[in-house]
Amino acid sequence: MKRFLLVALLLANANYARSLGVGETAPEFELPSLLPDREDLTISKTRGIITYLDFWASWCGPCNISFPEMIELKDEFKNQPVEVIAISVDKKRELARRFLGRHRINFKVAIDVTGNTAEAFDVPGMPTSFIIDSKGKIYSEHEGFRKGDMKKIREKIKTLLIADQT
């Protein structure tokens, strides 16, 4: 039993090293849009505005909760310098498209088939969202999504908006 616990402890400590953190510059990316008639997405285009960047997947359970709230978020800040971008990490486009079909998407959606962008952001779980400030720096990171989480995210975006205005 002792040895079993030992193995358990070893495994528990084998966390893979996290490199990207709050305060660092968000990595550059250029990804194809998942929605028809939309241009490719690059992070440099969102310099100067606050970006809510969400990594999601069609097979991610909590993404069913986060999507309707992201639609509300986009709606709430539509007249302010806030962009909402969702990046799917699906390997199959049709799975991602089927998921999008269940929602009335009002924000930008890109797809990262290779997972390279998710890797660059060191995404720890599904979904993970980042708030990127107007200077392109990561202001906060949020792993997972449960009811009520958007309240905290909204507060952070408001704080950033106020900071940008002063």
Binding site: A8, L11, A12, N13, A14, N15, Y16, P124, G125
Partner: peptide, 8 residues
């Protein structure tokens, strides 16, 4: 959940 790879 431990280290994202296992569950005890």
């Amino acid at each position: 959940d431990l280290n994202n790879m296992s569950t005890l």
